[in-house]
Nucleic acid binder design. Structure first.
Lengths: 176, 176
DNA sequence: TATGAAAGAGCTGGGCA
DNA sequence: TGCCCAGCTCTTTCATA
């Protein structure tokens, strides 16, 4: 499964079906994708047992999925709450002036470790940030800095019924 | 690193520092957390080399982090674009009537595979959904269903400068 | 908590169907 | 594409500090 010591190549950051189409995935690839999304550290042997293929054959398929950018990496998932982040929130930022992402001020704000995700969006806002902070006081301090970029609107997360859904290739969603 | 075949125990879905505090993490735990977040399939031996500890000692520390809920699991990261999802968007839903999450209608909507994350928030909206869809036509179809829950506001993601930040225990953010 | 040794499981590369 | 085999690496456990 590649050298775990390097980032995978070809992990474009988003949109636009760059490169390969979802076609070319057979039912076994599908199942493998599902399994590795759920159990990132599952062994090739175990995968082989589940899909009835030899470890070597599975390794080859996984290597292909990594190589063409379908699998972009592997990660341990950690609980923000256990690391001192008691509050999760979404902050929407509506532009003030024509500040683009390349300018130094946004760069500096986006570098803050509390910002888990930052998305540049069209629509009525400009950016959507997902942030984790210690408490509301901490949130206030963070917002002061974010507000230098534009008008902010904050929504504090109470619960997350869907935290992270396994992605299934389009057209292959499970028949319930 | 535990049986990869089971979900980790004690992975509360969020907020509120349930259980253990971030204290009790020494510099080595910190480094391990960073490494496994970046390279989810790194071996215990390799971790041992990087932090200068025996594989057995690393295994023990990782087991502790998993056991107390700091590490909640492992996952392969996949590219939605490579699986046919050309459009990523955030949909905010403002309540219409007092529909709670436990009711069957929201349950059915949240079950749609296009919904990658669903957060229940306070603030001016009620829910924030992160969705992946094939194209704008597909988005329209999805929104028709989501609109049964309330007024929706959609923001289409153009780029994600911060896709997923490694979480660092609070108070231990890296001195730049 | 950490280490080292030993046994078992898993991985990788090459040859072949 | 996939299988098997051989050699090597990784994991796990246990005794010991």
């Amino acid at each position: 499964m590649g050298d775990p010591g390097e980032r995978l190549k070809d992990s474009r950051s988003h949109r636009g079906l760059a490169g390969d189409s979802p076609a070319g995935l057979d039912a076994i690839d599908l199942r493998l994708l599902e399994l590795v999304q759920e159990e990132g550290r599952i062994t090739l042997s175990e995968l082989g047992r589940r899909v009835r293929l030899s470890p070597a054959a599975v390794a080859e398929r996984i290597r292909r999925l990594e190589g063409n950018g379908t699998i972009t990496g592997y990660a341990a998932l950690v609980s923000p709450a256990h690391l001192g982040y008691g509050v999760l929130a979404f902050v929407r930022v509506a532009p003030r002036g024509g500040l683009t992402l390349r300018h130094p001020r946004p760069q500096k704000v986006l570098a803050r470790p509390e910002i888990l995700e930052a998305h540049h969006v069209v629509g009525e806002d400009c950016w959507i940030l997902k942030v984790a902070v210690r408490d509301t006081g901490h949130l206030e301090e963070l917002l002061e800095q974010v507000m230098t970029l534009g008008r902010t609107t904050t929504s504090i997360v109470m619960s997350s019924p869907v935290d992270r859904r396994v992605i299934v290739p389009i057209g292959r969603e499970r028949p319930e």
